[in-house]
């Protein structure tokens, strides 16, 4: 007999070693998340996947599932907090959806829609962040970076290159690249690298593809992020 937890009253089986997030996704239960990608080691930084476990809040992407855990996920209180976190992400960077080439395919935008975010609520910081277009095939637009470190993890763990890293603390946090010049074009990053494919926002984009998918045929035009991430996995 398999071990189980309950999420919002639903019995969800799990295997030893799985996190609450792993078990939830395997059973088609959506827990909002941005920094998590099942292909990589959990990071636990965005905190969107915070759930209530036996009365205490915990990041579901890092919390191991153990027999009988009572998990609350889709509650008004948790979703209010998640919405506030997403709003803070929006004002902390420069996320201009109307002209962004990632619009319609962007997980940040999609999760904001899912959480019914109607406005940024907080004052925009309008930080000055650098765009690095020096790579012939890849654009790095730091305005859209949410510091999830998925590119850091993918470059290190999947590509074996260590192209990306974070430096600085708090508001001074910056995504840097591993080259003497500090420019992406001088790194070993290739267009086919996993690191280029995992960005949940438009911070890392392949050049030459912008707006080539018409409105109406983009990933989230007809499906919510819940449907996409529980049905078809990650984009």
């Amino acid at each position: 007999m398999s071990k189980t937890i309950t999420i919002d009253g639903l019995t969800v089986p799990f295997r030893d070693g799985q996190t609450i997030m792993d078990a939830a996704l395997a059973s088609g239960v959506y827990i909002p998340h941005l920094c998590h990608n099942p292909e990589f080691k959990p990071h636990g930084s965005c905190k969107l996947c915070t759930v209530n476990v036996n009365g205490r809040n915990a990041a579901s992407c890092t919390m191991p599932a153990t027999e009988g855990l009572q998990v609350l996920n889709d509650t008004a209180e948790l979703n209010d907090e998640r919405r506030a976190l997403v709003q803070m992400l929006f004002v902390e960077g420069n996320h201009l959806c109307p002209s962004c080439e990632k619009s319609g395919n962007c997980q940040l935008q999609a999760v904001a829609y899912y959480l019914e975010m109607m406005s940024p609520h907080y004052n925009h910081f309008y930080p000055t962040r650098e765009v690095d277009a020096s790579h012939p095939g890849i654009l790095l637009d730091r305005n859209r970076c949410i510091y999830c470190e998925l590119c850091v993890r993918a470059s290190r763990d999947a590509d074996g290159k260590n192209v990306f890293g974070l430096t600085g603390r708090g508001m001074a946090t910056t995504l840097i690249v591993n080259s003497a010049s500090g420019r992406l074009g001088d790194t070993t990053l290739a267009v086919t690298d996993k690191a280029v494919q995992v960005c949940p926002t438009g911070a890392l984009m392949k050049k030459g593809l912008a707006y080539t998918v018409p409105i109406g045929r983009r990933i989230f035009d007809h499906h919510s992020i819940k449907d996409v991430q529980t049905g078809g996995g990650h984009e």
Binding site: S99, E101, V131, Y211
Partner: peptide, 8 residues
């Protein structure tokens, strides 16, 4: 900004 973004 990248040139391809400008028309939008």
């Amino acid at each position: 900004r990248p040139f391809w973004e400008v028309p939008v």
